[in-house]
Design a protein around this nucleic acid. Sequence first.
DNA 1: TTGCAAGGCCTTGTTATGCAAGGTATCGTA
DNA 2: TACGATACCTTGCATAACAAGGCCTTGCAA
Lengths: 112, 112
Amino acid sequence: MSNDEDKILTNLRKGVLEFSVLAALAKERGYGRNLAHSLSERGLIASEGTLYPLLSRLRSTGLVDTELSDPADGRQRRYYTLTPAGRARLDGFRAAWVPLRDTVDELLETTP
Amino acid sequence: MSNDEDKILTNLRKGVLEFSVLAALAKERGYGRNLAHSLSERGLIASEGTLYPLLSRLRSTGLVDTELSDPADGRQRRYYTLTPAGRARLDGFRAAWVPLRDTVDELLETTP
DNA sequence: TTGCAAGGCCTTGTTATGCAAGGTATCGTA
DNA sequence: TACGATACCTTGCATAACAAGGCCTTGCAA
């Protein structure tokens, strides 16, 4: 971990990464490397090593379903899709995120 | 840790509590129990046990200064004030917070 | 005056998340 | 046929918030 700025981001990500993945999967199914790339572009993860354990967790808690692609269609991939439970958890996150986000914004805005 | 909702909040707080404290101190100095109460009201901490170790950390890294109140003025308290380094770190947080907040909002908004 | 609730500060052990740095196997192509 | 890119995964670590306590002092009430 190099500088302070990175540590700030690391801790911020700790709260939102799981739900960023769920939100991404709510739009369209995806597979590991794919998700890793797009999340990395958005600054939501720092390495692949973060994503795969998370995906396993989401799978074992029933928030996502997985299916292997047909090996005949080129390279085989494990695709992830959101389950109803996953969508419900995403809604739960939204309910927690909005007020906390507003609280933080308020604190920052009113800071001299 | 009781339910899922609590865990969501716990992880969200992991990124923002330190800076919420700094932002609160940027407005006016405060003392432990005082800060604990106001942060707890805003949903930023779940117990005092979170705050005191954080305050120690802020002190040992030079982000806040402390002074004991005059014992003659009623109950003795340890007051915390923001240092220039603390203010700089708060600015660093703001720089990381805004884009990440926007990214999360964007993911949530465009979710079907 | 004695007891007790509240104010005020702090510590210990646990849990969980993200990170870095690896490792393995397969495919396409030069 | 060798090599780089694709794709998935594991291990060990650092750290932040939490719960559940403990300790001392002050003020009020019985």
